[in-house]
Write a protein that binds this DNA or RNA. Structure first.
Lengths: 350, 350
DNA sequence: GCCATGTATGACACCGGTGTCCAACTGGAC
DNA sequence: GTCCAGTTGGACACCGGTGTCATACATGGC
């Protein structure tokens, strides 16, 4: 009988009542089995579980959500030019969600629009999301965090620096990572090092810039304003920003680009001017996206543990729900690694 | 009063009963307003709508889903190495979903695992998804389609060729697109053209290969087996597959790689051997991913309208739900364009 | 002035789960 | 044999919406 029902396929979904009838118990008892209530006879439990298994019964999540007053949907909000990063983040989050009853709902937004706030708000309230993960640069928006607080929606913000609320934050230490990268250039003998900064208003851009300046200051190297060019985190912006740097005389012997896309732009610009990399120009990027190994020479870059951070963010979010009293203690701060490839060499002895 | 409730923020969500009480009507009437029932007095409608607007009331989607017997969740199933493609697809789908009450839930799977089927099945049944969009190569799995049929779950498959069920399909004509690309090479004077094929078992790989062979046959060019190398759609596989091609003597003057990642691999291999591109070797890829413009020279490639296809897939899926009787007639077949960049030139006169 | 007709609204059951609370049953102590 | 405590199971209301059907009222034809 049970078998038969199952094979019918098409839509006549089993309900908790069907299971109860088959097992000869009340629906509440079935509910107890599903929810692993401790006060239940083992025999009863086994019997019901067997039937559930045989029939392939799956509790209706909508009904469950309605009765429980909360659902099992995690939102992912992003507004980001970097496809690889978003996908890696999704990967990390989904890894953490795997095996739980949570699902991931995604929502790209347009930071530029003045409707962003309303957009996210309706996203969160309409589906009554359990919580959201917010990717940079949206995550740097404090007004957004306040709004989510007001809405009573859990959230975790991904970022590039320790912000005030560690509770809601998973961050990488970009400043230190960049400082390390630049120290590497200095150790190779570079003294005239250019920076292609990220867009104004991006926390990550600021952090990376500060790391850059920090390393130079440590080494007692002065930093003329002309060695800093503004970029937008895009390939094209990196390409055009590097023009002004490569026009300088004397030319910088190395350039740190605040992300890989822009670093690829620098490399491209160098190629256009027949500047040999790394012999005449060293380049370091940031992110360790695949493009770094597709170009020639492969780019030295900074890798941050994006998948692990996504996982941590998700665990932070759902930890409060499944953690049985035990404090969920996911790290909030992650550090990065310099990945040495072929775009760095000692400066040419001129 | 209403205002007060709203400002409380935190969780004390309004229900349809609250609205009904405030408006002095029954909950059913409020429900009619929400669902735009035509049989309603305009005055009543206005009154209720005003209250809904003032209070910021949002119907509980879980309750709605429960009562209606269907929800508003679209699933996206993928198992794919190409991040850019997945993200573009997400973009297209979300564009179509924007403004509707549907949300997108994503689920990457592992095609290799023998649990894929169960995984997808539980994904679909657990949340009782309204429908799913399946990306290649998973979409080529007919057993999966059968399973979804049995489960009574709507689906749309993205693909690279017209499959049998146009109803459930959104496809690009890869064969013709590749034939065009290869005709371009032939028109430039190339006669020894190598192919880096995609993985066995991928429909797209087969289609692209057939397009390749078609163009050569048309031109009366013979195709020795040695000019075909097998790849896996990855950069590394493109790199190693091109080795055998570049070792040939005489060497092919052009190579068509079945996707951009592998084309980038060919370019990299050429660089390692000091083979000038495009002077000594022309390269064409497929997909038009960003990497094509990051490398030097930028790669000539085939662009397919992936965002538009994602949009079409989503519309196909939800069209049946919102289309008022009118047949939803999204195109099922999309064609591609050859994008000419810098990696193709006439063969060197030897 | 009556009934047939149609329109606007409401009462009530229902979707499929969960929480509360009480009844029934069990075993042990007296 | 009776009573009590502790365990197990079920009746019922409820979550927040929607569908069905009945009712109240306005309108038009005779």
């Amino acid at each position: 009988m049970a078998k038969q029902k199952q094979d019918e396929g098409q839509a006549p979904k089993l309900t908790i009542n069907d299971i109860a009838r088959m097992a000869g118990v009340s629906k509440k008892t079935v509910s107890r089995v599903i929810n692993r209530s401790p006060l239940l006879n083992q025999d009863t439990r086994d019997k019901v579980e067997a039937i559930i298994r045989d029939t392939g019964y799956v509790p209706n999540p909508q009904a469950r959500a309605l009765a429980l007053g909360r659902n099992f949907l995690i939102g992912l909000v992003y507004d980001n030019p970097n496809a690889q990063m978003i996908l890696s983040m999704q990967k990390g989050i989904l890894e953490a969600l795997h095996g739980t009853e949570f699902e991931l709902v995604i929502r790209p937004v347009d930071r530029g629009s003045n409707l962003v706030m309303d957009d996210i708000k309706s996203f969160v309230t309409r589906q009554r999301l359990f919580g959201v993960v917010i990717l940079p640069p949206m995550s740097e928006n404090d007004a957004l965090a306040r709004m989510l607080d007001e809405e009573g929606c859990r959230y975790v913000r991904m970022g590039s620096a320790v912000l005030d609320d560690a509770e809601h934050m998973v961050a990488s230490n970009d400043r230190e990572a960049v400082a390390d990268a630049v120290r590497h250039l200095i150790a190779q003998g570079h003294r005239r090092i250019g920076l292609i900064a990220g867009p104004h208003g991006f926390r990550s851009a600021q952090e990376r810039r500060e790391g850059f300046e920090l390393a130079l200051r440590e080494a007692g190297i002065s930093l003329p304003r002309s060695l800093i060019a503004d970029g937008q985190y895009t390939f094209e912006s990196g390409l055009s920003a590097s023009e002004s740097l490569l026009d300088l005389s004397p030319r910088p012997t190395a350039i740190f680009a605040s992300n890989d896309e822009m670093a690829a732009g620098v490399l491209y610009a160098a190629r256009l001017r027949d500047i040999a990399v790394p012999e005449q120009l060293s380049i370091i990027g940031f992110d360790d996206t695949p493009v770094t190994t597709r170009v020639w020479p492969p780019l030295t870059t900074v890798r941050w543990p994006i998948v692990a951070m996504g996982r941590a963010a998700a665990l932070k979010l759902i930890g409060t729900a499944i953690g049985e009293g035990s404090e969920v203690n996911e790290p909030s701060m992650f550090s990065s690694t310099l990945i040495r490839r072929g775009s760095v060499a000692p400066p040419a002895t001129s």
